[in-house]
Design a protein around this nucleic acid. Structure first.
Lengths: 103, 103
DNA sequence: CTTGAGGTACGATGCAAGACGTACCTGAAA
DNA sequence: TTTCAGGTACGTCTTGCATCGTACCTCAAG
């Protein structure tokens, strides 16, 4: 239900708003930098915020269509929607990885 | 004197925050779509907000390093910083023009 | 079954941001 | 010089959002 974003109704404003936050940008940049696209846990990003706030951030990223969230009940898997992003917003991930590398 | 943004200290968060607003995104998209890069007036964008709010929006765009504002005293010229943007944030303008064309 | 770590739901809070009203400045044209 | 449209400055209102506290849920491991 309601898979919005790059793979759905792709609102560029929603995507930019999602990526305006440094924590969320860090998450996507890390995912984008790892070419293996393996599933990661929310915890593995070491965000310096409470878990409630993390829930919030990952939800924003999901609603922007940037990630998939796989629910296992008591834990959650995160996966970058690389293909959809590159198809609908080509160049976006490059911007993020470039910033992270300190261009 | 504080030329921030793509041509200066390029904070991607500031740029995304600037482009998260639909009015500002419209401005940049229109500028990007016009290859002639001619100078335009603030009025020529027909933003459905008051002139005070327009002043605000153009300031945000300037502080994000996306436009130049040429002050003539009682009127103002707007110019896209295309070269700097394409150098520091390649692909960004394409994302905006693509959205506007209804990709 | 109990425990505990990972997650969510809901509410509260503090702050940033969009929008406008009023007042004022600037310069071209009448 | 008077007028007036274009812009700015400042204050205010309202909305959105990042953050956290409290409470509850879920499942795997004892």
């Amino acid at each position: 239900m309601t898979e919005s974003g790059p793979a759905g109704d792709a609102d560029l404003g929603t995507v930019f708003r999602a990526l305006a936050d440094e924590h969320r940008r860090t998450v996507i940049a890390e995912l984008a930098a790892d070419g293996s696209d393996r599933e990661r846990t929310c915890n593995s990003f070491d965000l310096p915020v409470s878990k409630q706030t993390q829930t919030h951030h990952f939800r924003v990223l999901r609603e922007a269509g940037l990630i998939h969230e796989i629910n296992y009940g008591n834990r959650k898997g995160i996966r970058l929607r690389r293909a959809e992003i590159n198809r609908r917003l080509p160049g976006l991930l490059d911007l993020l990885t470039a910033e992270r590398r300190g261009t």
